[in-house]
């Protein structure tokens, strides 16, 4: 009688785990995690902690002291006393004075109008760049980025020289005879729009260019082949396909424009009401840090909505595999 043994792995014959593989595996795991940890730590230290400090100040009471608020930390003993002393009075104050509400609305409107204007100026630019011969595209791209090589502040100051009543623009227009009296542009909303459109244009052009450049031109030809006029093909094909670029560009302009301080301060004159300026006044003129912090927290919450919309649009684009 023969006996057959089922063939199977002999436990003694299993290969031994290679020495050091475990340690190397751990190291590799750590390296992979480090890649994620670093940006999170960065955000934690440079965004979340300052935000929490600001949020905490916004719940404190004003104190005439140096610094002009009650101490942030006075040991664990005082923690409960501290918490109980927190007040939402600063937030309530924001609702009582119409100034803040008006400043928020005015900022959103100015940022919104500026964003639309930047899109109107930036889209044709990006379109022209994307349709330009491939050889000159890098040059055009560099020209868009070129202003960044000079200080932002200096460039805004330069606009004062251009826009003021005796400035370059008015001198030119008077010389050509288009106008008899100098135009009042500086210290108006128009000057703010010009400043924001000028300063933020690259942020609009670059994502639009990226979206338009990778678009297959045969799609436009296909639309025309199927009976679209060139204009029709633009609105039915090019425009919807550049939507991710439009959204990204608008967010990149709108979000910083809402809180913009330098441009309205230098070009907008004293009567312009924007939240960035209000914030500055509360911090440095009134030295009311708690109210200023409350203003900042509300501004942040206002901006979180468009940022989240932006994120969602990005996720959707990625999901569609484009």
């Amino acid at each position: 009688m023969t006996q057959t043994f089922p063939p199977g792995p002999d436990p003694a014959m299993q290969p031994l785990p290679r020495k050091g593989a475990g340690l190397r595996g751990i190291m590799r795991g750590l390296t992979a995690k480090l890649v994620i940890i670093i940006p999170y730590v960065w955000l934690l230290i440079l965004f979340l902690v300052p935000f929490l400090i600001v949020a905490k100040i916004s719940l404190s009471q004003i104190a005439t002291a140096m610094p002009p608020y009650q101490p942030a930390f006075d040991g664990l003993d005082g923690l409960w006393a501290k918490l109980s002393s927190f007040t939402v009075a600063n937030y309530l104050w924001l609702t009582e004075d119409a100034l803040y509400f008006n400043a928020y609305i005015s900022s959103l409107v100015i940022a919104g109008v500026s964003t639309v204007l930047t899109l109107l100026v930036g889209y044709p630019m990006a379109y022209g760049m994307a349709r330009a011969p491939a050889t000159i595209r890098p040059t055009l791209l560099m020209l868009v980025i070129l202003p960044f090589w000079t200080s932002f502040l200096i460039r805004v100051y330069a606009w004062i020289g251009i826009l003021k009543p005796e400035g370059l623009l008015n001198q030119f227009l008077l010389w050509t005879g288009v106008i008899d009296t100098p135009l009042l542009i500086l210290n108006t909303h128009t000057a703010i729009y010009i400043g924001i459109v000028y300063s933020y244009l690259p942020f609009m052009v670059l994502p639009l260019y990226a979206a338009l450049e990778k678009m297959d031109h045969s799609l436009v030809e296909a639309a025309q082949d199927l009976g679209c006029t060139p204009t029709g093909a633009f609105w039915k094909v090019t425009f919807p396909l550049s939507r991710p670029g439009i959204i990204a560009g608008c967010m990149l302009v709108f979000i910083p424009a809402v809180g913009e301080f330098v441009i309205p301060d230098l070009l907008g004159g004293s009567q312009t009401l924007m939240i960035g300026r209000t914030l500055w006044n509360e911090f440095f003129a009134n030295r009311d840090w708690p109210v200023a912090s409350a203003v900042a927290v509300i501004l942040l919450l206002l901006l979180v909505v468009p940022i989240m919309l932006f994120q969602q649009a990005q996720a959707k684009t990625q999901e569609e595999g484009r």
Partner: peptide
């Protein structure tokens, strides 16, 4: 009408 090499379907 043309059928494009890349198909040129509207994505």
């Amino acid at each position: 009408n043309m059928m494009f090499q890349s198909y040129a379907l509207f994505p």
